[in-house]
Amino acid sequence: MKPVNEMKIEFVSRSSNESFARATVAAFVSQLDPTISELADIKTAVSEAVTNCIVHAYKNSIGTIYISVQIFDTGRITIKIRDKGVGIPNIKKAMEPLFTTGGDERAGLGFAVMQSFMDKIKVTSKIDKGTTVTLEKDIIPRVLRNG
């Protein structure tokens, strides 16, 4: 399936860019006319993935975070968040709710939130090569929503 629209951004892994990343993705997907709730879901999921890149992938360094968003004519959006950081040794463990290596002030809920707020999540990772998180969500077209 070919996307009807697509965008790519890259930015350095500074925490001040977390709001830039989610706002930019939200602005791009807004052309599908999502509900406020759908938009909040997407912003939250993107924020979680980008925070993971900053807190974990580039823990002791500054690297580049790559985001691409594709929109399909069915209303499906695919968001890829990629880093070239340390990688995740055990993806299954990392995705367990409440598991965190981020210390006391981190809830360990990042992946749980992505899973719950999006329709589909895929995580691929290679040690010292990086991690790609792919998020999918179907935005219900307004014509169907209004009956």
Partner: peptide
């Protein structure tokens, strides 16, 4: 806006 950082 709040993400899981707020839960922490």
């Amino acid at each position: 806006f709040m993400d899981s950082s707020g839960i922490g």
